[in-house]
Design a binder for these strands. Structure first.
Lengths: 302, 302
DNA sequence: GCCTAGCCCTGCAAATTTGCAGGATGTTCA
DNA sequence: TGAACATCCTGCAAATTTGCAGGGCTAGGC
C-alpha cells in the first residue's frame, strides 16, 4: 500500500503545478516533495504528471487520482474537525444505558421531543438487565440506581422516585389481602434474581421485611410487572411503572414506601461535549416529569 | 496536519483492538505502530484509545475518527484501483500453493469471506504433495512449513501451530496403549513417505523418538488422518486438523508436543501487487483464527 | 542573444523513523 | 497461586527520510 500521506503531497503539487510552490505551501523541502512524488508514482506504477512549459500537468492517470486524493483530503479534514472541534457541536452519536423500566416509561415517551429539539444528535437507548459501567464504552452515559464508586466518572443525582408494593385484584380475591408486612411471608412474592442483582438497592423485598425472598424471579422488571399484573403474586414496583398498568393495585401504601434515586453517570472525558450536555439536560427534564406526580402516593387501597 | 498514513495504522489497531495483531496485519513492527499512534494522538490532541482488559477500545473521539479514517481508506483503495488499472487492481489471478491440511482446514473455510471481500481476485488454492518453490512460477505464493533459503523471495513468518500424537479408541482397544515414546517402536505408525518429504520439518516421527519410521505411509495428511481415525495406527497430526475429527484421540500429549511455523513465501517482484497483498493479509488472518484455539493442547487421553 | 531568476536534481550529512532485543506487565490456564 | 505466553515499552542501532548545498537547466525579460 502506498503511503497515504503522499496523497497530500500529490494534491499540493497538482494544485500548484510546480514542486517549489507546493513545497512552500506544505512547509516541506522541494527535494523531498519531488522524491515523495516519485515514490508515489512508483508505488502506483503510474506516471501522474507530465512536465511542460515549466509546469507539471496531470496526466490522465493523475486526473483519476486527483478525485480520490480530494476525497481522502475531505476525510482527513473532517477527521480533524470532528475529533478536535466536535466538542461544541450539537450533533453526533450518544448511547445511553438505562434500566428497561426507566427507558421504557420515562425516556422513550420523550424521545420524539428530544429528536425535534436536537435533530443532529443520534440518541440510542441501550437496555441492560444490569447497569453497564460506562467506562467500558458500551455506552457513553448511563442512568443508574446506585451511585457508582470511584473512577473517572462524572456523577449527577437526577432525583428521587418512589416504590410501593403492588398486586392485582385477582391475587387478592384468590389469596386474601395481607394486612401487614410480616403477612407477606405467606404470600407469593415477585422480585429480582438475587445472583443477578447488580446493585444492593434493588433488593427491595429485604427492605420491606427482613428475610423476604422472591419465589417468582426475573432479571426483567417488566417481566416482574407482567407476573404481578397477571395475578401471580406481590412485588415492589416503581410508581412510575405501576401507575400505568390498570391491572395493578397498590398494597399497604401507608406502611411501606421505598425511595430511591436516579443517578446520571458519564465518562469524565465526555462531560464537556455539547451533545452529552444536551442529553443530560433532557434526561433531567424527563425525570422532572415524574415529580409532577410523584408526591401523591397512590391510594392506600379499599 | 497529521500524517495521513497514520490513519492506516489507527484503523488497523481499531480493528484488531491490540497493537501486536495490527502490526502483523500491516507488516510493521509493533513498536512502530505504538509510536505512530502516539504521534497521531498528539497531532490531533485527542486520546483515541483507552486500554482495558488487555485491549484497546476506542474512546468517543476515537469513534469519531474511525468513520473518517474509513472514508480515507475507501479513497485510498479506490485510488489504487482506479489509477493502477488492470495490472494492479484488486483483481486477477493468484495461485497459492499450500499443504492440503492447511488449505482444507485453515484456508478453505475462509474462501467465501475472501471472495466476498475481493470478488475480482481469482484465488486458486493449489495443493501440492510437496511444496513448490514459488520462484519456478507454478504458484505466485506458497505457505511453507520451513523457512526457505535466501533468494529473490520475500518471506514472512505467519505463526506457529502445534502437533501431537493421535490414534483412535479402536486401535487402543485392539493393541493397547503405549505409555512412552519408546513404546511406539512396537506400534503401527502412520506418517509421510520419506522419499517425498520435501522438508525435514515434516519428519515428525524422528522427532518423537529417533529412528521411528512409519509403516503406513502417504503423502497426504488427510489420508493419514483417515487411517489413524479408522484405527489403523498412530501418527502425528496438527491440532487444527485433529480437533475436528471425533474419531481421533490424543496420545501422550504431556510427553510429546511438536511446534512448527507457517511461512508465507512469494516472489520478490510480486510483493507490491495489490492482490498479492490482499491474499497475504487474508492468509495472515486465517492463521490468526488458529490462535484462538491453538493453545489448548488436546486432553492427554483416558 | 544574453543575463537573471526560479526550479529541479544529485550527493552528502543530519535528522527521524523503524526494527530488534530485552525486560516488565498482564492475562490465562492448570 | 504460580507458570507460561503474549503484549507492550524502552533503549539502542540500523535503516530510511529529509534538508541543505551546489550545479545544471529553462524560461522570461531586456
Amino acid at each position: 500500500m502506498f503511503d497515504w500521506d503522499d496523497l497530500r503531497v500529490f494534491l499540493a503539487v497538482a494544485r500548484a503545478r510546480k514542486v517549489a510552490p507546493a513545497a512552500r505551501t506544505l512547509g516541506i523541502d522541494a527535494t523531498t516533495i519531488a522524491r515523495r512524488l516519485a515514490r508515489l508514482e512508483k508505488a502506483l506504477d503510474a506516471e501522474l504528471f507530465e512536465v511542460g512549459a515549466g509546469e507539471r500537468a496531470l496526466t490522465a492517470r493523475g486526473q483519476e487520482l486527483l478525485a480520490h486524493a480530494e476525497a481522502a483530503e475531505s476525510a482527513a479534514l473532517a477527521a480533524m474537525e470532528d475529533v478536535q472541534g466536535q466538542q461544541h457541536r450539537l450533533s453526533g452519536q450518544v448511547r445511553l444505558s438505562v434500566a428497561e423500566g426507566f427507558g421504557t416509561w420515562v425516556l422513550a415517551p420523550g424521545m420524539g421531543d428530544f429528536n425535534r429539539r436536537h435533530p443532529g444528535i443520534r440518541l440510542d437507548l441501550v437496555t441492560a438487565s444490569g447497569f453497564l459501567n460506562p467506562s467500558n464504552r458500551e455506552a457513553d452515559m448511563a442512568v443508574m440506581l446506585a451511585r457508582p464508586q470511584r473512577g473517572r466518572l462524572t456523577v449527577r443525582r437526577l432525583g428521587d422516585y418512589r416504590l410501593h408494593l403492588y398486586t392485582s385484584p385477582a391475587y387478592i380475591e384468590r389469596v386474601g389481602r395481607p394486612g401487614k408486612p410480616a403477612d407477606l411471608r405467606d404470600c407469593t412474592l415477585v422480585g429480582y434474581v438475587p445472583e443477578f442483582i447488580f446493585s444492593p438497592e434493588l433488593d427491595y423485598l429485604d427492605e420491606v421485611e427482613a428475610g423476604l425472598e422472591a419465589t417468582l424471579r426475573s432479571t426483567s422488571i417488566i417481566m416482574q410487572q407482567r407476573m404481578i399484573a397477571d395475578g401471580a403474586g406481590i412485588g415492589v414496583l416503581p410508581d412510575f411503572i405501576a401507575r400505568r398498568d390498570p391491572g395493578l393495585m397498590p398494597l399497604m401504601a401507608d406502611r411501606v414506601e421505598i425511595i430511591r434515586s436516579f443517578w446520571l453517570v458519564m465518562h469524565g472525558d465526555l462531560r464537556k461535549l455539547a451533545r452529552i450536555g444536551a442529553v443530560a439536560g433532557w434526561v433531567q427534564e424527563r425525570v422532572e416529569t415524574l415529580s409532577g406526580a410523584r408526591d401523591v402516593p397512590p391510594d392506600a387501597g379499599g
